[in-house]
């Protein structure tokens, strides 16, 4: 009540006003990177879209890319790339209240509001309206630089069905502690190995499991160790609806063993027809949110400074 209409009119246009017709897709994408209950995220806005960044100091970082093509309306008037901090848990819980099961609801997101808040409101009904104002904060200035560079001339990568990856990593909980990921070109194999309370080794052999290990690229043997809890964070929160989409996750090992895990989350408008029967235009690439995790390897004598 304290802002009179004339005051708010005098203010500059907000950096971003955008509308989205699939809230659930956005909720799914953000949920995938929510590995802790209380977690701070940084949101970066640009003319290309919205990027949400979450990190565990120095070890693990996740990014969700929502390209402007995912939005039904996207008006960016900011200068440069405005950033703000927000509680991820609150943001996800809040967006979730906008998602009505079995109905596609259109929401409008605006930043900043009169008090630097993030404003969200439903816009698809005249007689009822849901709205939210989320307090934002100034983000930490320095964030760990995850400069991902390929190790060598050919990238070392493999693509595995997300469900299989999640299952493998879940199974490795038993040995726990650190997990060794090894790739060898001949025969093309990916090995996850945990040595802790016990030993467990999971092999994905390219020629044997072509339906699970969808793609494989590796010209020399590599092997790095990663902390189990960080590896687990990359898959444990993928919503089951996303797993059911049966997409692949791509894992790439970069210079120094930095591991990049990429997932795809559909932000397509929910169709009434069954998605797998829907033959015309399976799912447009523009309706996909890209999610990337970066996991630093454990440092031991073999991998320090390369």
């Amino acid at each position: 009540m304290n802002a009179s209409p004339s005051e708010s009119e005098a203010e500059e246009a907000p950096d971003l006003v955008c509308q989205l017709d699939n809230v659930q897709g956005m909720v799914d994408a953000f949920t995938t990177v929510r590995w802790k209950r209380h977690q701070d995220a940084v949101v970066e806005l640009s003319e290309h879209g919205v990027v949400l960044i979450v990190e565990e100091t120095g070890c693990l970082q996740a990014k969700v890319y929502l390209q402007r093509e995912l939005f039904v309306r996207y008006e960016f008037k900011g200068h440069g790339r405005p950033r703000f901090g927000v509680s991820l848990g609150l943001f996800v819980d809040c967006l979730n209240t906008f998602s009505v099961p079995g109905k596609s609801s259109v929401i409008e997101i605006q930043y900043p509001g009169p008090d630097m808040q993030l404003l969200v409101k439903s816009v698809d009904s005249l007689e009822s309206c849901i709205y939210a104002e989320i307090r934002t904060r100034i983000p930490d200035t320095v964030s760990w630089d995850y400069n991902f560079e390929p190790a060598g001339s050919t990238p070392i990568s493999f693509t595995v069905k997300s469900a299989a990856l999640k299952e493998a990593i879940d199974d490795l909980e038993w040995p726990g502690s650190s997990i060794q990921i090894s790739l060898q070109p001949n025969p093309p194999t990916v090995t996850f190995r945990g040595e802790g309370h016990g030993d467990l080794q999971i092999d994905f052999t390219y020629y044997v499991n072509t339906d699970l290990l969808v793609a494989f690229q590796c010209d020399r043997q590599v092997s790095y160790r990663y902390k189990y809890k960080f590896l687990r964070a990359t898959t444990s929160n993928i919503p089951s609806a996303v797993i059911k989409d049966n997409r692949g996750s791509k894992l790439t090992i970069g210079r120094g063993g930095l591991l990049k895990v990429q997932h795809l989350v559909s932000v397509a408008r929910p169709t009434t027809s069954h998605p797998r029967i829907d033959s015309a235009g399976y799912q447009q690439p523009s309706r996909i949110a890209y999610i990337e995790f970066f996991v630093k390897p454990e440092e031991d004598e073999a991998t320090i400074h390369d």
């Binding site: 209240t97 007689e127 709205y131 104002e133």
Partner: peptide, 12 residues
């Protein structure tokens, strides 16, 4: 709350 305001209005 201090961090968020979330509401719904139904009219008419």
């Amino acid at each position: 709350t201090t961090l968020i305001t979330l509401g719904a209005e139904f009219q008419k």
